[in-house]
Simulated scan of single mutants.
Amino acid sequence: MKIALVGIGKIAVDQHVPAIAASDDWELAATVSRHGSVEGVEAFDDFDAMLAARSDIRVVSLCLPPVPRFEYAAKAIRAGRHVMLEKPPGATLAECHMLERMAHAHGVSIYATWHSREADKVSAAKKWLSDKTLNSLHVTWKEDVRRWHPGQEWVWEPGGMGVFDPGINALSIVTEILPDDVHLKSAYLDIPSNKQTPIGAALEFVHPTGAAVTADFDWRQTGDQIWMIEAVTEQGTLTLTDGGARILIDGIEDAVQSENPLHGEYPNLYAKMARLVTNGGVDMDLRPMVHVSDALALGRRTAVEPFYE
């Protein structure tokens, strides 16, 4: 199937373009970007012009920042195109619900992707936890914003989510691997005095059986980057590290390779999008975004030192 990639920035170049190129399901037929392009692929700088000129392109993958994404997705759906949304799927929950309703009304597929759910050991963690009694779960997600979002000022503006841009990756894993849903109890947010969104966050959740579920997010990490989830159960302790790429049970690493032949988060996402389009499916799981929205609503804000690149 022919697909158009909209927003040719770092994530598109690093992840989306290679995943599409390696897939037997997709042909990258066009790009839309004010500044970027992909060699050998027809490039547009206007989305409406692409939709008008390329009626043969059935699917649009949106890699734009979350704030402008709704307008592009709505235009694509009205034009009868299937839509794939980079995470987070939008700037607000209301617009995500609207897009899902529009997709159903126009008979097209829409997919809110969560790439961290496709990390190699996430499915194994979900299976292991499925019959365990949870005592506690703690997320430690600490990285250097200068390394991963250099010069991307939109992350500090309303709708950019700040540290929840990576933190939502952790929440997407937690909502996938826990057998029971949790909801937010409290949040503490560190806001740089010259920014609009948090650079650090501490979250506490309510679990239906009383297990302690907490998370610490920080964008000021130097040195080693930490993407870890530890779940303590009455039957043992599970630890996911490296963003879900490695799993340890009671400190012993499971080195068994995944049976999934795709070997990669974004190849898995594009394979699922192909299935959704083929079968007429919709996947708009918004649970990770609900937690972020709740944190921004309930969070106690503390002003911290200004942040500069």
Rank of each mutant, 00 (worst) to 15 (best):
T239V: 12
D181W: 07
D46E: 15
Y72H: 06
A19H: 04
M102I: 05
F205H: 05
L248K: 12
V163Q: 08
M98E: 05
F307P: 04
I252T: 07
N135I: 14
I252F: 12
R54T: 06
K185N: 14
I20P: 05
W128P: 01
W148V: 07
M284H: 09
G90R: 04
V59W: 13
R246D: 13
Q225L: 10
G162H: 05
A79S: 08
A53V: 06
G7S: 15
S193H: 00
C63N: 13
A112D: 00
W227G: 15
T214N: 09
P306F: 00
V59N: 12
R300G: 01
I168N: 03
V182S: 03
L276N: 04
V67K: 13
A303M: 09
G80I: 03
Q196V: 01
T241R: 06
D48V: 10
E234Q: 14
T197Q: 03
G9F: 10
E42L: 15
L269F: 15
I8Y: 02
G90T: 03
P198Q: 01
F217R: 13
V6Q: 15
M50P: 08
P65Y: 08
L240P: 02
L51F: 03
V304Q: 00
S172R: 09
D180W: 09
P150L: 08
I8L: 10
V41D: 03
H104V: 15
K2A: 03
T239F: 12
D180E: 11
W148P: 08
A53K: 12
T237P: 04
H207I: 05
F47Y: 12
P267Y: 10
E259K: 14
V145E: 11
L129W: 12
N194K: 08
D56G: 01
G244R: 14
L286G: 05
D14I: 03
W227Y: 12
H149W: 07
A4Y: 14
L64K: 04
M84T: 05
Q221F: 11
L178S: 05
M98I: 04
S172Y: 07
D56S: 06
V163D: 05
M228G: 03
L184Q: 09
S186I: 11
H291K: 10
P288S: 02
W114G: 08
H149I: 00
W128E: 04
G9I: 10
D224Y: 08
A74P: 04
K127G: 04
A29Q: 01
R147T: 09
A29I: 07
A187V: 04
H35K: 10
D46R: 15
L276P: 04
V174C: 02
L296S: 02
T175G: 05
Q257Y: 15
G223S: 08
D120M: 02
G162C: 11
D165C: 00
P198E: 01
E86K: 15
Y72N: 00
M1W: 06
G244I: 13
F70Q: 09
M273H: 06
L189Q: 01
A201I: 07
D216L: 11
M289V: 00
E39K: 03
L64T: 06
T278N: 02
K132G: 08
